Computed example of a mutant assay.
Amino acid sequence: MAESDGGQSVSGYIKHHLTNASVGDGFWTFHVDTLAWSIVLGFVFILSFRAVAKKATIGVPGKWQACVELIVEFVDNTVKSTYHGKSALIAPLALTIFVWVLLMNFMDLIPVDFLPSFAQFIGGQLGYDPHHVYMKVVPTTDVNMTFALSIGVFILMIFYSIKIKGVGGFLKELYAHPFNTPWLYWFNFILEVVALLAKPLSLSLRLFGNLYAGELIFILIAGTIGLWQLPLHFLWAAFHLLIIPLQAFIFMMLTIVYLSMASEEH
């Protein structure tokens, strides 16, 4: 259990585990742990799927190849049934989002003290105060990460809207819908801009809120009962096995839906 300056306490323990390892100041503060873990997990996804693609056989597949094929087929069927435009980017994008978010969410199942304690040990060996060595290992519990993902989706929404409808069509969609009368153009514009900005906001906060709440419960379990945390940890982890893939699926599904709406010509 992490110690606060005044000794061991549950509040100090929780605060320590919810603090990111960061560098910089103000707006230019970088959460090193979020960046590092998200990049590492991104490479795990790319390299593992690439290895399967290079060694894929048409005969009886191995277990990992069968798993990858199942995921790819699931995402492909979801895109075909949801996205009604024509773009070769949507299916790879959906696959990347689903697997990457899934891997980041799965970091939530690692016992909360394991990797932070290891980081504190390494920091102590390097001459740092272990009490001031921080590490959050679940990137999706950092709102900056979920907002970065949703902003990427938002940029693609704008891109496809302009690509399919043109600049004029995109602007007309903002001011002439739902009431196509000049007297209410200003009202339409306010409604549509709010609805447009609400999409990436809700997309990011939904993922962040669910994973942050799950991680907080893991920390509370560990902070209140210490080494006896494992039985309760495994019980909550078993329930969390439903939340982790569900949140990855919802993020992927909403991304496809938003891009499909942006690609509709009317």
Rank of each mutant, 00 (worst) to 15 (best):
P245V: 10
I158A: 13
F239Q: 07
S4A: 13
V138I: 07
L95F: 14
G26C: 11
L259K: 09
T255K: 11
I250E: 10
L35N: 04
W236V: 13
G168I: 04
I39E: 11
M253E: 02
F234T: 00
K15P: 02
L230N: 08
K165N: 14
I243G: 04
W183G: 12
P92E: 05
A222S: 14
S81T: 11
G152T: 12
F43T: 03
V79L: 08
G62S: 05
P231V: 15
L149P: 02
V194A: 13
E173G: 15
K163I: 02
M135I: 08
L211M: 15
L241A: 13
G127N: 04
K80S: 12
F179E: 11
K165A: 06
H132V: 03
P92S: 09
W64H: 09
N180G: 08
H177D: 00
V44M: 09
P92T: 11
H177Y: 13
W228T: 00
E264A: 02
W186G: 11
A66I: 05
F74N: 00
D108G: 14
L241F: 14
P182D: 07
L227P: 02
I58L: 15
L196I: 02
V60H: 09
G124Q: 03
L197D: 06
F249P: 00
F74P: 01
L115T: 14
N188M: 12
D142L: 06
N180D: 15
P200W: 03
E3H: 12
L95C: 03
T224D: 00
F170V: 00
A21T: 01
M252Y: 06
Q8I: 08
L174R: 14
V52G: 01
G12S: 08
H131E: 11
F118M: 11
I217M: 11
L235D: 09
F218A: 03
F179P: 05
K54G: 01
V99K: 11
